[in-house]
Computed example of a mutant assay.
Amino acid sequence: MSRRRPAGEGRAEAGPGPLGRTGRARAWAELLRLPALFTVPGDALAGAAATSGRANRRTLLAIGSSLCLYEAGMALNDWADRAEDAVERPHRPLPSGRVHPTAALAAACAFTGAGLSLAACAGRPALTVAVPLATTVWAYDLSLKRTAAGPLAMATARGLDLLLGAAATTGTGAPSTGIRAALPSAAALGAHTLAVTTVSRRETQGGSPLAALSALTTTAALSRLLTHPPRSQGGKGSQGSQESQGSQGTPGTSGRSTSPGVAALTAAYATTVARPYFHATLNPSPPLTQRAVGAGIRAMIPLQCALSARSGAPVAALLTAALSPLAARFAKKVSVT
Score class of each variant (00 low, 15 high):
53 G>S: 09
296 G>I: 01
29 A>R: 02
277 Y>A: 04
307 L>K: 02
31 L>D: 02
264 A>N: 07
290 Q>R: 14
194 L>G: 09
132 P>Y: 07
143 S>I: 04
218 T>L: 13
161 D>T: 15
134 A>H: 07
323 L>G: 01
328 A>N: 08
14 A>I: 05
42 G>Q: 06
128 T>W: 12
82 R>S: 07
149 A>Q: 09
276 P>T: 03
4 R>C: 09
35 P>F: 00
237 G>W: 12
41 P>L: 10
315 V>M: 00
108 A>I: 02
308 S>E: 04
312 G>E: 12
333 K>H: 15
310 R>D: 02
192 H>V: 01
227 T>Y: 09
306 A>D: 08
135 T>V: 13
100 H>F: 02
15 G>W: 06
309 A>S: 10
60 L>Q: 06
301 I>H: 07
95 P>C: 05
84 E>P: 06
315 V>H: 00
132 P>W: 09
62 A>H: 08
201 R>C: 02
180 R>M: 08
316 A>N: 08
184 P>D: 01
50 A>W: 08
277 Y>S: 06
271 T>L: 12
49 A>I: 14
310 R>W: 12
86 A>K: 04
274 A>F: 09
244 S>W: 05
212 A>V: 04
175 P>I: 00
114 A>Q: 00
202 R>L: 04
19 L>Q: 15
261 G>I: 06
327 A>H: 12
193 T>F: 04
66 S>G: 12
254 S>V: 01
160 L>H: 08
90 P>M: 09
64 G>Q: 07
190 G>E: 13
332 K>M: 09
67 L>D: 05
119 A>T: 00
257 S>M: 02
169 T>N: 02
222 L>R: 05
51 T>P: 12
84 E>T: 03
121 C>I: 00
192 H>I: 02
9 E>L: 10
22 T>W: 07
163 L>G: 14
328 A>V: 03
198 T>S: 14
301 I>K: 05
301 I>W: 10
142 L>Y: 10
139 A>I: 08
216 L>N: 01
124 R>G: 02
330 F>C: 01
68 C>M: 09
229 P>K: 15
257 S>R: 15
124 R>S: 06
66 S>N: 09
35 P>S: 07
97 G>R: 02
289 T>P: 05
269 Y>W: 08
257 S>G: 09
164 L>T: 05
132 P>D: 08
176 S>V: 12
202 R>M: 01
225 L>T: 04
59 T>N: 07
210 L>P: 14
302 P>E: 11
2 S>D: 15
23 G>P: 10
194 L>V: 10
239 Q>D: 12
220 A>E: 12
156 T>L: 13
330 F>R: 11
242 Q>I: 10
134 A>P: 09
264 A>G: 03
103 A>P: 06
147 T>C: 14
151 P>E: 07
137 V>L: 04
85 D>M: 03
251 P>N: 02
307 L>C: 02
290 Q>S: 14
